[in-house]
Design a protein around this nucleic acid. Structure first.
Lengths: 251, 251
DNA sequence: AAGTTTGGTTGATCTGAATCAAGGAATGTC
DNA sequence: GACATTCCTTGATTCAGATCAACCAAACTT
């Protein structure tokens, strides 16, 4: 199995790896770095380093010392928690410009694994912590981001606690449609009508608290009902967004 | 129905209601106000007002404009989200010294309802926001708190997505045991061995994504197995904490 | 103290999703 | 081009928890 490989520990002093110029960073305006002054950005840039991550690689391990945090520059990753017997719950999907890791904490409460090839801007956690403490504007950005994530987590608790299988699938498809739509420069309306899922069926099940078979059946049913189309394994085309929304909200 | 009454809007100028002296506040050392300088505390005190809330009253309504935030001084409240057809998920239980409301947001993403008689220290949301922006130390406290809440929400997603009914009940009992134990001045070890539940069976179900009947049956089973005792409707005595922990973690 | 209401338990039955099982289609390998 | 391998779909069966239904006990009325 080539996946779930352990990444080497970051080497903060590896001069070749530090970022030369954050002003060139494609996610700079959407990531937490947004709003920093040029000189602050330069300091932060020297603290971080870019790192490519192959699909399947795990960047952060649940329970390990929380040694790094990072911005996602490119790609999609899953955030997951698991039980001793192997049951796993995906508690978040992160996209380009999102922040990963647990600042101000001793241990990582979750694992983070790349669902696609990805590129990160990595910081040593303790270095990031002290930089953040000295830059209230950055902490403020991080706070807003964390509050948003908390709202999303709450919404997801409703999905997991109360929604039926069909409602869950519909909710996930709409969420992916919106989140993937935001990833581009277009602060787009209500989401893409066609997109490629960064998740396989098992991972969809792990997000939704369902088995792979139930996910497959519900997708087939939505397709049969003409709500969506599935041109191939990974791509979804929303045919009737209103209907999908009604299903997701049980309206 | 005397519950779910709407609270009157806070009147920031009601001089009789402003707090005279935060230094007397019983939760001051655990709430986000902890660590503020005496003069800052005085300013913050003038911005807030104390308010008693009766059991069953709703303090904040999902979807409403986010007009207030508050510290919980005394009592227990639930944080919940619901669907148009009435299905409700409790996404959090808040205790004395916890913070409620959504800073930096236009609308409240959830409702907050008192499970016991409670006392709050209420702030206008916009007033609190600007005060916070001017006091990095306060924002830092809020950030840490929000990060912790997010960790808890993630953990709860695992419960809702992957755990069986028995495991869920065990997890809830342990969590209540710990959280209620923290409420006192004792930064207590691993939780109270006997405590009164601030939740009825329906509410336990709404936290756990289970029906009232399943909650009841699982409690009866844990009692029959000698893991817990149930001297009366609302009180739980943990007889075998190790066993309960094993059940909760499927160890 | 009898009647009512509220909240909880327990039993019988049903059902949505899990599990078990078999195939199928796309992709990779030699 | 045959043969794995991986991922997905579909069918048959089972089962955990929901639903339906009756009852019980404590607290509240009168």
């Amino acid at each position: 199995m080539p996946s779930d490989e352990r990444l080497p520990r970051p080497v903060a002093t590896a001069t070749l790896l530090i970022m030369k110029d954050c002003t060139q960073c494609i996610v700079r305006n959407r990531a937490i770095c947004a709003g920093l002054e040029p000189d602050e950005l330069e300091v932060l840039g020297k603290l971080g380093r870019r790192q490519k991550v192959a699909k399947g690689q795990t960047v952060l391990w649940e329970g390990d010392d929380s040694v790094v945090v990072a911005n996602v520059i490119e790609g999609v990753l899953k955030v997951s928690i698991s039980m001793s017997d192997g049951r796993e719950q995906i508690v978040g999907i992160v996209f380009s410009s999102d922040f990963i890791g647990r600042p101000f904490g001793q241990q990582s409460p979750y694992s983070v694994t790349a669902l696609t090839d990805a590129e990160l801007c990595i910081f040593s956690r303790s270095t990031f912590d002290s930089f953040a403490r000295q830059h209230p504007e950055l902490e403020h950005k991080l706070l807003r981001r964390t509050l948003n994530e908390l709202d999303r987590a709450h919404e997801w608790m409703l999905v997991l606690g109360k929604k039926t299988a069909t409602e869950r699938i519909a909710t996930l498809l709409l969420e992916m449609s919106v989140r993937l739509g935001e990833t581009g420069c277009n602060a787009d309306t209500n989401g893409l009508d066609a997109f490629e899922l960064p998740l396989d069926r098992q991972q969809m099940g792990d997000v939704l608290g369902l088995t792979i078979e139930t996910v497959s059946r519900q997708l087939s049913k939505l397709k049969a009902d003409g709500v969506i189309n599935l041109p191939d394994r990974r791509t979804v085309a929303i045919q009737d967004r209103d209907r999908l929304q009604d299903i997701a909200a049980a309206a």
